[in-house]
Simulated scan of single mutants.
Amino acid sequence: MSICDLEQHLSLIDFPGRLTVSVADPGAVHPPLHPVEEAAVLRAVSGRRAEFAAGRVAARMALAQMGLPGVSIPMAEDRAPVWPAGTVGSISHTGTACIAITGDSEDYAGLGIDLEDAGSLDISLRREIGTKKELDQISDDHGIAATRLFSLKEAAYKAQYNLSRTVFGFGALELTDGGKCLRFARPVPPFKKGDCLPVLQWNVGDMWLSLCALSASFLHVKS
Rank of each mutant, 00 (worst) to 15 (best):
A50D: 10
A50I: 06
F52R: 07
A53G: 04
A54F: 00
G55Q: 09
A58V: 08
A59P: 01
R60M: 10
R60G: 08
R60L: 08
M61G: 06
M61P: 00
A62L: 09
A62E: 08
L63F: 11
L63W: 06
A64E: 15
A64W: 03
G67H: 09
L68E: 06
P69K: 15
V71E: 07
V71S: 08
V71G: 07
S72Y: 02
P74T: 13
A80L: 05
A80Q: 13
P81L: 11
V82H: 09
W83H: 02
A85T: 13
A85Y: 02
A85E: 15
G86V: 12
G86A: 13
I91M: 10
H93A: 08
G95F: 00
T96L: 13
T96M: 13
T96D: 15
A97M: 05
C98T: 05
C98I: 03
A100I: 02
I101M: 13
S105I: 04
E106G: 14
D107S: 14
A109G: 12
D114W: 03
D114E: 11
D114I: 10
L115Y: 03
E116S: 09
S120M: 12
S120P: 05
L121S: 07
L121K: 04
D122K: 10
D122F: 01
L125M: 12
L125Q: 10
R126W: 02
I129C: 02
T131I: 05
T131R: 07
K133G: 10
K133F: 00
E134T: 08
L135C: 03
D136P: 04
Q137E: 07
Q137N: 07
S139D: 15
D140W: 04
I144P: 00
I144V: 14
A145Q: 03
A146M: 09
T147L: 05
T147Q: 09
L149M: 04
F150I: 01
E154A: 04
A155E: 02
Y157E: 09
Y157F: 15
Q160V: 15
Q160R: 15
Y161K: 12
V167S: 12
V167D: 13
F168Q: 10
F168E: 10
G169K: 09
G169P: 00
F170H: 04
F170Y: 08
F170K: 11
G171M: 01
G171N: 12
A172M: 08
L173D: 02
T176Q: 14
G179N: 10
K180F: 00
R183T: 10
R183D: 00
F184A: 06
R186C: 11
R186D: 07
R186W: 00
R186T: 14
V188Q: 04
V188A: 05
P190G: 12
P190T: 10
G194T: 06
C196P: 01
L197E: 03
P198D: 02
P198V: 01
